[in-house]
Design a protein around this nucleic acid. Structure first.
Lengths: 366, 366
DNA sequence: CTGTTAGCGCTTTCAA
DNA sequence: TTGAAAGCGCTAACAG
């Protein structure tokens, strides 16, 4: 019963009698042994390397996910190290955090995988995502409450064929029929990579439905759709709910032209993904649920300022962290471009909860 | 330049020449030295002890805060140890997490303090809270959107004198006047410890305003108020927004009688508090903002199921953790009573996002 | 297959 | 005031 043997037993290492292993395991169990993770990382000078491979667009969303990852990883430094994009060679990493490609498949290999999407492919350890159905049903409920009287609503989504978007649509339709029988789903259109094309489709749809009262924008990029509605002079009569949370739409929310944006909570997605991954890497225990759901919620002009503040904090911390890291290791370019400027191009960054009192809060500063 | 000297320099220990200390510090800085926190905890066998002293009511809220603390502390075990209530003697602890008494003061002493409330007393290191103003203004906005046409709304709060409640009220009034000029704030009443008394006051108010269209329940315990509205037969014509997220009100949300509950996010409050505290204890660096704000958001029947799921996960994990801890240390009673039964007394615990399709979701299970 | 040993980066104690 | 050395709990390499 030497430490070496115990180590072999506890860590499923080869070169140990099945019998002794069993005895050691039993003893450990009865003694309630818990390994000291800190000491383990000390022993092996090796640090856990987590490679992060995420899409580049929509930029704000994924950069915020990265902020969440960084924030959650900070306390574990230097035991754990995040390698973003090209820096991290997945083959050398202990884990890979990724999102599926357009075909829904993961292409890289790694020891363990955390995965940010609605499906859990077999190769993924765990997936973190907001519930698409819940996003849709929340949008439906909100529109139902925002629009008074009988009327029509429409949906713009990216690709109805994609599972996530289909789920959103199901949720939307379901909550419409359940909570808002006064609303009729008059049209569902798909947005297009080409902004002009999207603009045209939305325009056509709006003309076809002159009395449309509500619009759910489920597309990743909502700006082309919003602009089409504005140019058609339809903003006043239209309650709009979007899923796009990006600096560009903040002013639309602030002005009330967009009634609500369903937050997919990228920051939390990153945090949760990292927490789960770390736990797994340390304990090798899989979480009970392989799909970790995050509750989406509505951002409106009354809670927008404080939501933004949180995002700013994360971003500032990330910047700080990267700077410190940079000076330590002294290599590698800055990849994480601060978005501050985009959030508030003209005014001071300080935009506290109180701002809601000033009607032009976002664009004028305080 | 031996390790001992370096240690003395870096940790401000006595018995070192001011000159050498300066030199060591300079060298450390230029080398970009970052202490290895894991190794530090190994060296001193001492673990960080954090004493948690939180109110007992409202039970659901504070127990969920504790769940958040536990969840965030789990990865740091065994370096950090949470001691709840009577277990932890604050005098022996490295830190104290607490909430202010009714008088707004902290009574216990500890090295550092995390604090869950709207104010930061001087003795507190940092405070974590939702922004009360934001809660109020969100409630105001939602009511403004839920209620169509000109009408009156009312507020029920705990004690207008308390700063947090005053802020809530300010936020509510502000967003009402800004976003919803069609609504008039017709009455503000205070709830009472005695449920009968509360019931009577609400009743009187409702009679005095027969055409009331909206009600914001900012009181901690909303049930007496909700019941009064129901018994007065006023539910149908009344849009109700509450701040009380507890098992008792879930069914009211599910049924649509309560249009929305503003979530003060106890789970996140706990997580954030612990993260900040840990960071401080390790690095002795104070966070840039001493008030950490969390964005409140609206829980409605469309996102209720998934919000509940998250709470359940936290609770299950906490139970698991406590069980494991219990078997290891084999002492101490279970203090943390699982609330599962209260959430869903009749049905199976599985209540997923899809449940929204069944109109009786909550009470019938699936 | 098992035991022994040398560290990992830090704190602490005891000597100089 | 400084240095030297032991040891925290664990892993890894080498002996038996």
């Amino acid at each position: 019963v030497s430490t070496g043997t115990v180590d072999r037993a506890l860590n499923d290492k080869p070169g140990i009698n099945a019998n002794t292993r069993a005895r050691v395991l039993a003893a450990a169990d009865s003694l309630g042994y818990r390994p000291n993770l800190a000491a383990r990382m000390l022993g092996t000078r090796r640090q856990l390397r987590v490679s992060v491979r995420l899409p580049e667009t929509p930029a704000f969303f994924w950069q915020t996910v990265c902020d969440g990852l960084r924030e959650a990883a900070a306390p574990f430094a230097p035991c754990l190290r995040l390698e973003f994009g090209a820096d991290g060679h997945p083959g050398l990493a202990d884990a890979l955090i990724t999102a599926p490609g357009p075909d829904g498949q993961i292409h890289d290999g790694a020891v363990s995988i955390s995965y940010m999407a609605d499906d859990v492919p077999d190769r993924a350890l765990v997936s973190v995502s907001v519930d698409a159905f819940s996003i849709g049903s929340q949008a439906g409920e909100l529109l139902g409450r925002f629009v008074s009287g009988v009327g029509q609503v429409a949906v713009v989504a990216d690709s109805i064929a994609a599972r996530a978007h289909a789920e959103q649509l199901r949720g939307f339709a379901s909550s419409l029929s359940m909570f808002s029988p006064h609303l009729e789903l008059a049209a569902v259109i798909e947005s297009h990579d080409d902004e002009r094309e999207t603009h045209r489709r939305v325009n056509d749809m709006l003309r076809a439905h002159p009395r449309l009262k509500g619009l759910f924008v489920g597309a990743r990029e909502s700006l082309p759709i919003l602009r089409a509605a504005r140019q058609g002079g339809r903003l006043a009569g239209l309650a709009i709910v979007t899923t796009d949370i990006s600096p560009e739409v903040f002013s639309w929310i602030q002005s009330g032209d967009v009634a609500a944006a369903i937050n997919r909570r990228p920051l939390e997605q990153g945090q949760v993904a990292l927490r789960l991954l770390y736990e797994y890497l340390q304990t090798r225990v899989l979480p009970t649920r392989r799909r970790q759901m995050i509750a989406p919620y509505a951002v409106t002009r009354s809670n927008l300022p404080i939501v933004l503040e949180r995002l700013d904090i994360a971003r500032a911390a990330a910047r700080l962290d990267e700077a410190a890291h940079g000076s330590t290791r002294g290599r590698g370019p800055r990849r994480h471009v601060p978005l501050q400027g985009q959030v508030d191009p003209s005014g001071p960054p300080a935009m506290r909860g109180r701002t809601v009192r000033g009607s032009t809060g976002l664009s004028s500063g305080e």
